[in-house]
Amino acid sequence: MRVPSRSPGQQPGPPVSPAAPARRRAPAVSLRRTPATEPDLDAYRAAVADLLVEIGALADASCIAARQVLVDQRLREPALAAVLDATPQGLVGARETLLLEMARYQPNERSSAGDLAALVRIYLLSRIDVMWWRDAPTYLTDKQVNGSPDLVDLEWLRRRDLLRFRYQEQPATLLGRGVRAVRRRVLPGATPRTAGLLFRRTRREVVALLNDIGREFAARTPAATPPLWVTSLVRSAEHQHRLRRLGYAAMVPSGHCLGWAVDVELEWFERFGVRDTLAELLLARQRAGEVNVVDEGQAWHLCLAPAARQRLRRAYEAEMGV
Rank of each mutant, 00 (worst) to 15 (best):
E205F: 02
E205A: 13
V206I: 13
V206K: 05
V206T: 15
V207S: 05
V207L: 08
V207E: 06
V207K: 03
V207P: 01
V207Q: 04
V207I: 12
A208S: 06
A208N: 02
A208D: 05
A208H: 01
L209R: 09
L209K: 08
L210E: 02
N211S: 11
N211I: 09
N211F: 05
N211L: 10
D212T: 15
D212E: 15
D212I: 05
I213S: 10
I213M: 13
I213H: 09
I213T: 11
G214S: 08
R215Q: 15
R215M: 13
R215Y: 10
R215I: 13
R215D: 15
E216T: 11
E216I: 06
E216Q: 15
F217L: 02
A218V: 13
A218R: 15
A219K: 11
A219G: 12
R220S: 13
R220F: 10
R220I: 11
R220G: 07
T221R: 02
T221P: 07
T221F: 05
P222V: 14
A223D: 14
A223I: 13
A223L: 14
A223T: 14
A223W: 08
A223M: 12
A224E: 15
A224C: 05
T225Q: 07
T225K: 07
T225P: 11
T225F: 10
T225N: 07
P226I: 07
P226L: 07
P226M: 09
P226G: 07
P226T: 10
P226Y: 08
P226D: 11
P227I: 10
P227M: 13
P227N: 13
L228G: 06
L228W: 12
L228E: 08
L228C: 12
W229V: 12
W229T: 06
W229D: 07
W229Q: 05
W229K: 01
W229E: 07
W229H: 14
V230H: 02
V230P: 06
T231L: 00
T231Q: 00
T231K: 00
S232A: 15
S232W: 04
S232V: 04
L233W: 03
V234L: 05
V234Y: 06
V234W: 06
V234Q: 01
V234I: 12
S236K: 03
S236T: 03
S236C: 06
A237K: 04
A237C: 00
A237N: 04
A237T: 05
E238V: 04
E238I: 04
H239C: 01
H239L: 07
H239K: 02
Q240T: 02
Q240H: 01
Q240P: 00
Q240A: 08
H241Y: 02
H241P: 00
R242E: 07
R242D: 02
R242Q: 04
R242T: 03
R242I: 01
R242S: 00
